[in-house]
Amino acid sequence: MTWFADSPGWRAFRRDTMAMTGLTLVALVVLAALFADWIAPYPSHAGPIGDFGAMGAPPGGRFLLGTDTIGRDLLTRLIYAYRLSLEMAIVVLAIATPIGVVVGLLAGYLGPAWSYGLMRLTDVFLSIPPLVLAMSITGFLEPSAIHGMIAITAMWWPWYARLTYNLTRAERQEGYVVAAEIVGASLPHILFREILPNCMPSILTKMTVDVGFVILIASSMSFLGLGAQAPTPDLGSMVADGAKYMPDAWWLTVFPAIAILIVVMGFNLLGDGLREAADVAR
């Protein structure tokens, strides 16, 4: 990520309060998820069994954010839910991005027939409302975290195809791409060595923002019961489960909702900051 190490960009990033806020939030979430086993106050509460002596305890005291109806520490479950959410987002993007990028590179570089075919296919996927597509896929299969991820991946790659397509269309006019063609470089060389590295800043920025959005979509799906199943801690299903006990046990809904807000906002601010820093560096 040489573009990131460029000092003008990094300087601009540091001066950008919103970007630094995003970075801080993301760092907190990621560290919590990574070191959940050490940080979470009651790691065993991530499973089905809690502290039956403290069912429905309000925030404060032994349980900072309170406990759920079977006495599991909410803070612990939120930390593990972050872990699951980040894992899902990383897997989804790790699969969707390469597919989308390759489709976009080919559509952007090859002749009009290829670009027409590939981009219409992309448009078809883009025209289906994301949640509907995801719901119909999990409708076929059984609701589970894995199937949720497959569903989200299927609806996510076209965005990368479109982004990469637009970037590639601009890149192919560049002198160095023409020069590589004339020297006789192979198609893979031109796509992956000449064009792709110049698209990476935009792609990485989009990936950063998308971590937040994938988590949001995954939470929406599990809120509807289409994602991770009990007893796995999951942000969306925690909001849904807690909603049954509103307003008495308000913390069961409010804290998971805030947790979603924090992670989505964190990745958004970070992504925006990176985009602006990359512009400055250029």
């Binding site: 040489t2 560049e174 002198g175 160095y176 023409v178 020069a179 060595r193 000449e194 590295p197």
Partner: peptide
């Protein structure tokens, strides 16, 4: 050999 020296070389190579 092209006209524009700014775009003739890949900035990432």
């Amino acid at each position: 050999i092209q006209q524009n020296p700014l775009s003739a070389l890949n900035p990432r190579r």
